[in-house]
């Protein structure tokens, strides 16, 4: 374009805006390709799989840190993958499971649930949409992100670079820096991150202090996504085993709505014709050495829990 045309303010502004948008689009395309290569991020690691697994574990941090993949793989006698994600609630778990099942074959789905998972007041469980934004071309990811974030999906999808700019401390450049720096994932080959920490007494005391004032806010939305996971498995013909995560026994006193939540899970799972497992009465739950906080097993606890869970899963699937 002749430079004298750029003296026209309108043309000049337009050309500049177009160049900026083009640069953003280019960077967006580059990052769309680079971000998934950062396998130190669990979501990228999950979405990179395309294969066959006998057992897929789905859940929140209790699954992420409490599933001993090696022990379970040995005891169950099949391949195991842990899709558990730290700080997630059922909507995100559903999205990951559905996207995973689009490119993987799974023999049995094992869903981890806990008494806090349906309580809006207990944990915020923010929806980590940013981790999934590079995967908006997956229909189920786009669908769930749209359900959770509404019209913003269109902005993230069609405004060049917006998603990487808005979440630039989480995705995009940070992934590139991780890869250049050779960051290793904090999870093992099964997708589990077993912890060595000792029991956190302060957390139990905080829970005790807050216990009397705690009010339960039932999340219908989270329950819906839980049911969608069961429905998804049914449509795919995959058996499901749902287990209530083992918690340190004293915590049961501070969880007044636990009974109601467990009843919901039990009844919903039974209605879907699947198995529901609980471990509240196991000796495992009475020893704080098995936990690093009230509701998370540590490495030792996960090792002790693995044979129990394997036994029940095999029994539930009629393979014991």
């Amino acid at each position: 374009m002749p430079m004298n045309r750029l003296k026209n303010p309108l043309v000049c502004s337009l050309v500049f805006v177009v160049i900026v948008l083009a640069v953003f689009q280019f960077e967006s395309v580059v990052l769309d390709r680079l971000v998934p290569l950062d396998k130190s991020v669990k979501v990228n690691w999950i979405y990179s799989h395309a294969g066959t697994f006998d057992y897929a574990f789905v859940g929140s941090s209790a699954a992420y840190t409490g599933i001993d993949g090696k022990a379970l793989s040995d005891t169950l006698g099949g391949s195991v993958i842990n899709l558990g994600l730290d700080g997630t609630a059922h909507p995100e778990q559903y999205m990951v499971l559905a996207a995973f099942l689009e490119s993987n074959d799974v023999g049995t789905i094992i869903l981890q649930v806990d008494a806090w998972g349906l309580d809006e007041n207990a944990y915020g469980y923010p929806f980590h949409e940013y981790l999934h934004l590079p995967y908006l071309d997956k229909p189920v990811v786009a669908e769930v992100v749209a359900e959770r974030r509404g019209g913003r999906l269109a902005a993230w999808k069609y405004v060049p670079f917006l998603k990487y700019a808005e979440f630039n401390t989480e995705i995009g450049v940070p992934n590139v820096v991780h890869m250049i720096g050779g960051r290793q994932p904090e999870f093992d080959v099964y997708g589990s991150s077993l912890r060595n920490q000792a029991f956190n007494q302060a957390e139990l005391e905080a829970l005790a202090a807050a216990g009397d004032h705690h009010s339960y806010a039932w999340s219908t939305m989270r329950a819906e996504y839980f049911e969608r996971m069961l429905d998804l498995a049914r449509k795919k013909g995959i058996p499901v085993v749902v287990y209530l995560t083992p918690e340190y026994h004293e915590v049961l006193d501070y969880s007044p709505s636990r009974h109601q939540v467990v009843s919901y899970y039990r009844e919903t799972v039974a209605a879907a014709g699947q198995a529901f497992l609980t471990y509240d009465d196991e000796p495992l739950c009475r020893d704080r050495l098995n936990f690093y906080n009230t509701s998370h097993l540590n490495r030792d606890g996960a090792g002790r829990f693995a044979p129990l869970l394997a036994r029940d899963v095999l029994a539930a699937s009629g393979r014991d």
Partner: peptide, 23 residues
């Protein structure tokens, strides 16, 4: 030249977009 100045502006915009704190 205009192209050099524009380059400087675009770099600044890119730095803000990539490294600005928006959340």
């Amino acid at each position: 030249p205009t192209c050099l100045r524009w380059l400087a502006y675009i770099i600044l915009i890119l730095v803000i977009a990539n490294f600005g704190i928006f959340q």
